[in-house]
């Protein structure tokens, strides 16, 4: 997004979200691989998730305590209440993908709450990449299971008269293409809006120019921070649940 910094006046909360390269890498075959802030923080999120899970798996105990207990609870929740409840038995193969989506997005969102860091998922490019990946995988799963023609005829409900079918087909195709778009925009806008509210509240402390009034926006900041932690986890869960739901739609037989 080309932000022009137009109507913000003295304070433009969007300038925190601009991307600058940290390590410049000259373009390889026309693609710019330089390490920018979202790239760095996505790598940190991956390292955190991977490191935690590997560390817990290295010393597994029969009666888990502490961190292992927490990780086991999370994995159990992802497996039972997310994949099995939504997709059912066929979903067993898709559990690693959906669990990885949830853990990666949750890590990215939560790491963005550390003051001075950059929320990788608050960039439309990152969330679009995730959404396009989900879209491609879902189509691939549906076409692999039912064949190309079977998948396309499975998009519209069976047993509708012909005239309605002519209207239904564009509607179904549009609704199919809107799903990844809505996934990307939902995650991106939630992260962007949440963090921008925090920045605006902090800006109000400077705007008021008085010591006495400072506690008011400060309380607002604390409340919004708590809400943002909640929203970070909920949005990761929503992304994973919607992915599982689209998968189950593509994999099911008939309508």
């Amino acid at each position: 997004m080309a932000e022009g910094g137009g109507g913000g006046g003295a304070m433009n909360p969007l300038h925190h979200f601009e991307i600058h390269p940290i390590i410049e890498i000259p373009p390889i075959a026309g693609v710019d691989f330089s390490i920018t802030q979202p790239v760095l923080w996505m790598m940190i999120a991956t390292a955190v998730v991977f490191g935690t899970l590997t560390f817990v798996a290295a010393t597994l105990k029969r009666s888990p305590k502490g961190l292992q207990n927490f990780i086991e609870m999370t994995i159990n929740f992802l497996r039972k209440d997310l994949v099995h409840a939504v997709i059912g038995e066929e979903g067993k193969g898709w559990f690693p993908f959906i669990a990885t989506l949830f853990l990666f997005i949750a890590a990215c969102n939560l790491l963005g709450l550390i003051p001075g860091s950059f929320t990788a998922t608050s960039n439309i490019n990152v969330t679009s990449a995730l959404a396009i990946m989900v879209f491609v995988f879902v189509q691939f799963a549906g076409i692999r299971k039912k064949g190309l023609l079977g998948y396309m005829t499975g998009l519209v409900p069976s047993g509708v008269p012909k005239p309605i079918l002519i209207i239904m087909i564009p509607i179904e195709i549009v609704s199919l293409l809107v799903k990844p778009f809505s996934l990307a925009v939902r995650l991106f806008a939630n992260m962007l809006a949440g963090h921008m509210v925090i920045y605006v509240f902090l800006g109000m402390i400077i705007l008021f120019k008085s010591i006495i009034l400072t506690p008011l926006p400060f309380i607002g900041v604390v409340i919004m921070y708590a809400f943002e932690i909640f929203v970070a986890l909920i949005q990761a869960y929503i992304f994973a649940v919607l992915t599982a739901s689209y998968l189950s739609d593509a994999l099911q037989e008939g309508h």
Binding site: E3, G6, G7, V185, A189, A193
Partner: peptide
């Protein structure tokens, strides 16, 4: 949030 994105586009993008 779709409406929020459009509003942000209106405020911060010139022309």
């Amino acid at each position: 949030l779709y409406a929020l994105v459009i509003s942000l586009l209106l405020i911060f993008v010139k022309g």
